[in-house]
Each structure stands twice: as C-alpha cells, then as structure tokens.
Simulated scan of single mutants.
Amino acid sequence: MRYRLDLQYFSQEKTEKASPKKRQDARQKGQVAKSSDVNTALVMLAVFLFMFFYGRVLGEYLHDMLQHVYSEYILWDVNEASIIPIFEEIALESTFVLIPIMLVAMVIGFGASAVQVGFKYTPESIAMKLEKINPISGFKRIFSIRALVELMKSLLKITLVGILVFSILWISLDSLLFLSQKSVETGFAEVARLTGIIGVSVAMLLLFLAIPDYIYQKYDHEKQIRMSKQDVKDEHKKMEGDPLIKSKRRQKQMDMAMQRMMQEVPKADVVITNPTHFAIALRYEDSEMAAPVITAKGADFVAFRIRTLAKQHEVILVENKALARALYAQAEIGDEVPEELFKAVAEVLAYVYRLKNELM
C-alpha cells in the first residue's frame, strides 16, 4: 500500500519539461517568459538618447512658452473666461511637443515585448477573474518566494542606481556649484546635459541588470509550466482521443466509405460474384479509362448488399468464383483490374455487352 502511494506521489511531481501543447496553452493564458526590466531599460535608454537630438526643440518650446506667458498672458485679467483659453493653448502646444517622445517610448516598449514573447493577442490574460481579487491569493503572492526575489531585485536596483547617480553628480560637482554664476541659457543647457547623462547611464545599468533578470524569468517560467508524468500521460491520451470515441469515429468513417461505395454500384457495368461469399462491381468507360475499374467490393454481408443493390438497378450479375476471389484479393476499390486478369475480365465484359445488345 505504501509503495503504491509513493508511486502516486512521484507521478504527480512536476519533473517533466512542458510539452509543445502545454507551452501553447500557457501562452494563450498570457504565461510567458518576460522581464519587465528589459522593457523599462530599453524605453528609458531610447527616450534619453532621443532627447539628446530633440532637446533643442524642447528647450526652444519652453523658452517661447515662458516668453509668451510673461509678455502676453501676464497682461490678461485672471478670471474664468481667460483661464480656460490659456490652459487650452498651453495644453495643445505641449501635446504636439511631447507626442514624439511618447511615440518613441510606445514603439520601443512594444518592440521590446515583441522581441521577448513575439506577437500574440491573449484576451484571456486580461479577462476579469474573481481569483485576481481574492485576498487569500493576494497574500500568497505577496509572501511568496517570487515576491521575495522581486523585493531583493528592487533593493539592488535602487542601491546601484543611487550609487551611480551620486557618482555622476560628485564628478560634476564643480560645474553644479558654478551654475549661479552662469546665464540662464548656459545653466539650463548644463542641467539638461547632466540629466541626459544620468538618464542614459541609469538606463544602461538597468539594461545590464535586466539580462540576469530575463534569464531568471525564463527559468521560473519553465519551472511554472513543468508537468508531472501523469500530466504527460493525460495529455497524450487526450490528444490521441478516448478509445471509445476513436472507435465511434472509425465506425462513422467506415459507414461513410460504405455509403459512397454503394452509390457506385448502380453505375457499374457488371457485378462478379462467388456467388455468395464475394461480390466485385466493375465499371469501364472506353473514352475515360485505360482499363476496367473496381468501384465496389465486399465479402459475405457486404457482398449480399452489393448483389441486392445491383439487382434493384438491373446491373448484370455474373458468377465466376475464381475471378471474383482473385479480384477481391489482388485489387482495392478505385484500382484498375490487374494486368494478369485482363483476359478473364474482358471475356466477362464482352458477355455483358452482348447480353445488353440482345435485350435491347
């Protein structure tokens, strides 16, 4: 009894790699190996690199906007009628200036996700599920090993980013201390340059840290979708199909094939019989066929049905035991008559054509 329980325990242990079907099912549910740190780092890097080229445009806009505010809007009376158009104009102009930055972030973010997991729309992953708001499940996620790993990662990133930013500011300390003695434009350019350097440096650091994170996420994903030996057996059984269902499917296919075969019997030129054990229907069109073709054949009960259907449609039956047995054994439905049986079949067809002419 204990030995049986041990076997049952080991059969349920997740020791097997996920099958292609299991991977596909997990992907449909949105369960993929993906590191959000990769997306964050790439988006941040792309935005700050873009700002090096786009910063002049942004600076000119800020300059023109401030100049316009202090030369135009400052003369307006502050009331409900004037505030609305001021905010609408500033918001509209700001939108046009910020759209390129937002587009860069969106394209890079989408591309980073596509590189990691490919293009796949998974509505099931965003579907509303009660278990997502279950407080018990939430506590389990908060106090899980995965949550602990994420906490350690966050603390590590905060520490390293803090050290990096402090180092850059320390190196640039002399330049920062003399900002008060520089013009507004020069000071703004210095702060913008320093901000860009910090942004790119932090993004490069996060990208470097994202590599082991992606490796861990891939490992954790593989671990999550592992299968037990019983899961593999169940999946294989499900893919192969239940024996009863397979039997019914096979029976239905045989019935359909039988029905198609019986539909060809009335079109036959002759049915050669054994006389009771075998029945073979032959059809020959001189303009279409190189040799007579077997359109139906059967033994015992099937042979009886072929003979009955042939009589109902006035198809001539010819008894030839040796030929019927040979045709049944050597050829399948849809095959031409074997070459060694040409002469015997030709004699039968000649007899059939002669009999039809006499009846006419």
Rank of each mutant, 00 (worst) to 15 (best):
L156V: 12
K182E: 11
S154I: 01
V165P: 06
I158L: 10
W170R: 10
T186N: 14
F166H: 01
L205Q: 05
L207C: 12
F188V: 12
S154A: 14
L160C: 00
F188K: 01
S154T: 14
S172M: 05
L155Y: 07
I198C: 10
T195K: 00
L160Q: 01
S201M: 05
S180Q: 09
S180H: 11
I168P: 02
T195N: 14
I168G: 05
G187E: 03
F166I: 04
V161M: 06
S154C: 05
V191R: 06
S175T: 12
I168F: 03
L176N: 07
L156N: 07
L155K: 06
F208Q: 06
T195I: 12
A192H: 13
W170L: 04
L164G: 02
S175I: 10
G162E: 05
V200S: 08
F188D: 07
T186A: 15
A203V: 10
G196H: 10
F208P: 09
S201I: 01
D174Y: 02
L160R: 07
I198Y: 02
A203D: 13
L206I: 11
R193C: 10
A189P: 08
L194A: 07
L206D: 00
G162N: 05
V200A: 11
I197L: 14
L160I: 08
V165I: 14
R193H: 12
F188C: 11
M204K: 02
S180V: 11
L164Y: 03
F208G: 11
L207E: 08
G196Q: 15
I168R: 00
G196F: 14
K182R: 14
G199T: 10
F166S: 07
A192V: 15
G187L: 02
K153F: 04
L160K: 04
I163D: 04
R193Q: 13
T186L: 13
E185L: 13
L169K: 03
L169N: 02
W170K: 10
V184Y: 03
E190D: 15
S172P: 05
M204I: 15
F166A: 10
L176M: 15
G199I: 07
S172D: 12
S175F: 07
M204G: 13
V202Y: 01
V200H: 03
L169Y: 03
F188P: 06
K153Q: 05
K182T: 13
L173G: 05
I197G: 08
G162Q: 02
F166E: 01
I163C: 05
F166C: 00
A189E: 12
I163F: 11
S201C: 09
E185K: 08
L169I: 08
I197S: 13
L173S: 09
G199Y: 01
I197A: 13
R193D: 14
S201V: 04
M152G: 15
L160M: 05
S175Q: 12
I198A: 02
I197W: 01
Q181S: 14
M204L: 15
S175D: 15
K157Q: 06
F166Y: 06
R193P: 08
R193G: 11
S175A: 12
W170Q: 06
V161E: 01
T159L: 09
I158Y: 04
L155P: 14
L156F: 09
A189L: 15
F166N: 02
L194Y: 09
L206T: 08
I197M: 13
A192G: 13
L177P: 01
L169H: 04
F188Q: 08
S175G: 14
L160D: 06
E190Y: 09
I171G: 02
T159C: 09
L194R: 08
S201T: 03
V191P: 09
R193E: 15
V165A: 07
L173N: 02
